[in-house]
């Protein structure tokens, strides 16, 4: 099985995490909401599969490149 790692694209704060480990997600589903530049930005699943890892939690300040989630597909 392949793994897709979703990384933080831009400095900001995680407002909410919308999935948990074990959840099945479809391409385009919201993984978490990242607040950056005074805007709430959804971070989406790039592939359909199963969430096997979550690297962030709500209220966490994050930097580019940090792991948000890993999806196995």
């Amino acid at each position: 099985m392949s793994r897709e790692t979703i990384e933080v694209p831009i400095t900001g704060k995680i407002i909410s995490v919308e999935v948990k480990v074990g959840d099945a997600v479809k391409e385009g589903d919201v993984i978490c909401i990242l607040e950056s530049m005074k805007m709430e930005n959804p971070i989406l699943a790039a592939v359909s599969g199963t969430v096997v890892e979550i690297g962030v939690k709500a209220e966490q300040v994050v930097k580019p490149g940090e792991k948000i989630a890993v999806i196995e597909y």
Binding site: P9, I10, E27, G28, M37, K38, M39, N41, A45, A46
Partner: peptide, 22 residues
């Protein structure tokens, strides 16, 4: 930032990996 937000949304709609906001 309305226009920037629209660009970010449309880019992401076409490709979930896209992040054009910056």
């Amino acid at each position: 930032p309305m226009s920037a937000r629209v660009v970010q949304k449309e880019g992401q709609k076409a490709n979930p990996r896209s992040f054009l906001l910056w």
